[in-house]
Simulated scan of single mutants.
Amino acid sequence: MRIIFMGTPEFSVPVLRALVEAGHDIVATYSQPPRRAGRGKALSPTPVALAAEAMGIDVRTPVSLRDAEVQAAFSALDADVAVVAAYGLILPRAVLDAPRLGCLNVHASLLPRWRGAAPIQRAILAGDLETGVGIMQMEAGLDTGPVRLEGRTPIDGKTAGALTDELSAMGARLMVTVLGDYDGHPAVTQTQDGITYATKIDKTEARIDWSQPAEQVERQVRAFNPVPGAFFEIAGERVKLLAADPIRASGEAGMVLDDHLTITCGSGALRPTLLQRAGRGAMTARDLLRGFPIPPGTRL
C-alpha cells in the first residue's frame, strides 16, 4: 500500500519500521517540528524524523495541518491510507478524508477506556489489571472511531516505560496484520459503556503525596517511570523514586522508619528499591544512603 506515516516519539518508530519491513511504500512521514533540547538548546529532530531520514523517507514537519497548502500537499501524495501513531497534532477533516482508506491510529488502550493523550500512565495510575492496543479507524472525535483489531496484555507491575515498549511492538504487529488483510478486519463500533479520558500528564502530578495509600503511591512511581519521574524533596534536593515495594507498616505519613529508607504512607509503607538524585544515575536505596544519609525519624 501507499502509506503516509504520522508519528513523533520513540513509541512510533517500531510501527514505521514494521511497515517498511512488510514491503509497504511509505510515500512520506509527518512528524512534529524539531524542538530545542539539551544544555545547548539546539534544535533536535523527533525520533520518527530521525528514523525516517535514515531510511530515505521524505520527512515533513508542519506546525499545523489546518493550513490549506499543507492539506493540499498531503492530498497530493495520493495515499491508500495514513497510519498514525502518537503524532500529537489534530487531524482536520480534510486530512482524515484524503487517503483512499482513511486514517488508522495505533492507540495504546482498550477503547473506549482511556481515550486521549496519556492512556498508558492513566491505566497504571487507576490500577487497571490489563491494557492493550487498538487499531482504530479515525474520526473527527477524540478516539471515538471504530476498532479493526485489538491486542491485550496484563499490566502486572510494569512501569510506563516497559509498557510503552511492549505496546509499541504490539501495535506494529497489529497494524501490519490489518493492512495485510484490510477487508478481513472490519471496523467495530466502540461501546458506549466504560468511556474514560486519559488527560495529559501534568508535571505537578509527579510529586509524591505520602498521605496516599502505599499501593497508590507505588502506582504513581510506575506510571511516571521513566518520565517525568515521581519525586520527593529532602534538604532542598529533589529525589526521584523509580521503583519501590509496598510493605505492611504504620506510622505518621511521610516518616522514614528504618535504615532501608522505608517510608510510611496514608496506609502501609513503601520500601524504595531504585532512586535517582539530581544530575546522577539511578541507584539502590543502599547506595543512595551511603552518600546521602536520611536517618530514621526524618519527615519527608
Results as ranks from 00 to 15, higher is better:
residue 59 V to M: 09
residue 56 G to C: 10
residue 125 L to A: 09
residue 52 A to M: 07
residue 133 V to T: 08
residue 104 L to S: 06
residue 122 R to L: 08
residue 40 G to D: 09
residue 49 A to H: 03
residue 74 F to K: 02
residue 137 Q to G: 11
residue 45 P to H: 09
residue 101 L to R: 15
residue 69 E to F: 03
residue 3 I to T: 13
residue 60 R to V: 12
residue 79 A to Q: 04
residue 92 P to S: 08
residue 71 Q to T: 07
residue 90 I to E: 08
residue 138 M to F: 07
residue 17 R to G: 10
residue 44 S to Q: 14
residue 96 L to R: 03
residue 37 A to P: 00
residue 109 S to I: 10
residue 128 D to M: 10
residue 4 I to L: 14
residue 43 L to D: 10
residue 129 L to S: 13
residue 24 H to Y: 11
residue 120 I to N: 05
residue 31 S to D: 02
residue 81 V to N: 01
residue 40 G to S: 13
residue 113 R to M: 11
residue 44 S to N: 07
residue 126 A to D: 13
residue 49 A to Q: 02
residue 85 A to W: 02
residue 77 L to N: 02
residue 82 A to R: 02
residue 91 L to D: 01
residue 92 P to N: 09
residue 49 A to Y: 01
residue 31 S to W: 02
residue 49 A to C: 08
residue 101 L to E: 12
residue 70 V to L: 05
residue 12 S to G: 12
residue 53 E to Y: 01
residue 108 A to D: 03
residue 83 V to Y: 02
residue 61 T to G: 05
residue 43 L to G: 03
residue 138 M to T: 10
residue 48 V to F: 07
residue 49 A to R: 03
residue 51 A to S: 15
residue 99 P to F: 05
residue 31 S to Y: 03
residue 78 D to R: 13
residue 27 V to N: 06
residue 31 S to L: 04
residue 101 L to K: 14
residue 83 V to W: 02
residue 34 P to S: 12
residue 113 R to Q: 14
residue 128 D to V: 06
residue 117 A to Q: 04
residue 48 V to S: 08
residue 29 T to R: 00
residue 76 A to G: 13
residue 28 A to V: 13
residue 24 H to P: 01
residue 57 I to E: 03
residue 99 P to R: 07
residue 9 P to D: 06
residue 88 G to Q: 08
residue 106 V to T: 07
residue 34 P to I: 09
residue 106 V to I: 15
residue 13 V to E: 01
residue 32 Q to W: 02
residue 116 G to V: 04
residue 111 L to Q: 01
residue 139 E to L: 14
residue 106 V to N: 01
residue 98 A to Q: 05
residue 112 P to W: 04
residue 30 Y to K: 05
residue 29 T to I: 14
residue 88 G to T: 07
residue 46 T to M: 10
residue 36 R to I: 11
residue 92 P to I: 07
residue 1 M to S: 14
residue 8 T to I: 09
residue 130 E to M: 12
residue 69 E to A: 15
residue 69 E to Q: 13
residue 112 P to Y: 01
residue 12 S to L: 04
residue 130 E to V: 07
residue 93 R to G: 02
residue 56 G to N: 09
residue 15 V to G: 00
residue 29 T to Q: 00
residue 115 R to Q: 13
residue 109 S to W: 00
residue 104 L to M: 13
residue 109 S to V: 01
residue 94 A to W: 00
residue 86 A to M: 08
residue 69 E to P: 00
residue 110 L to F: 06
residue 117 A to S: 12
residue 90 I to M: 13
residue 28 A to L: 09
residue 120 I to E: 02
residue 95 V to L: 04
residue 112 P to C: 11
residue 5 F to L: 11
residue 67 D to V: 11
residue 130 E to Q: 14
residue 89 L to P: 00
residue 65 L to I: 03
residue 110 L to A: 04
residue 68 A to F: 05
residue 58 D to K: 14
residue 13 V to N: 01
residue 32 Q to T: 12
residue 76 A to L: 01
residue 115 R to N: 09
residue 107 H to G: 07
residue 45 P to V: 06
residue 136 M to V: 15
residue 3 I to C: 14
residue 61 T to N: 11
residue 25 D to T: 14
residue 5 F to P: 00
residue 95 V to C: 10
residue 90 I to Y: 10
residue 6 M to R: 01
